[in-house]
């Protein structure tokens, strides 16, 4: 049952990342990887909210496996983030590479904190 929840979450999260990336790419400046940035920040926001809800007793362990380990884990990515950062640096856009690394971490952390705070306000 636990494995099934992670598998279903992963089956939804990864394609959601791919489609979001395509949608964002088709509407934004190609020099900055906004697609990966977007899915990572959204993933942090959802996982922060879920973690806050779990602490408040409002999210079951099953929901955490489905949405947290499965969906958020597959929606967000470290491998594509680091590869795109390396590509920016290799293509001579070192400033963009540094901004991508720092902004992703800062925005991801901010989203995680905002999610936990929102869950506290809603359920605690």
């Amino acid at each position: 049952m636990n494995w099934l929840l992670v598998i279903v979450g992963g089956m939804v999260g990864a394609p959601l990342r791919h489609l979001t990336d395509r949608a964002v790419r088709s509407r934004s400046d190609a020099t900055f990887p906004w697609g990966t940035f977007t899915v990572n920040v959204v993933g942090c926001l959802i996982l922060g909210t879920l973690t806050g809800a779990a602490t408040a007793g409002a999210a079951s362990s099953h929901l955490q496996l489905l949405l947290g380990t499965g969906l958020c884990g597959a929606l967000s990515t470290y491998s594509t983030f680091s590869y795109e950062t390396l590509r920016l640096a290799e293509d001579g856009a070192r400033f963009h590479a540094a901004v991508n690394a720092v902004a992703s971490v800062v925005a991801g952390l901010g989203a995680a904190f905002a999610g936990v705070a929102a869950a506290d306000a809603l359920w605690a």
Binding site: G43, L47, S76
Partner: peptide
């Protein structure tokens, strides 16, 4: 490429757990 790069490796690595674990350690 989409199967392994986007799917397998994207699903294996995670940015959200990274950020929330930092939040939790601070908490």
């Amino acid at each position: 490429r989409p199967f392994f790069g986007t799917g397998v490796l994207g699903g294996f690595t995670t940015f959200s757990t990274y950020a929330v674990d930092i939040q939790r350690l601070l908490d």
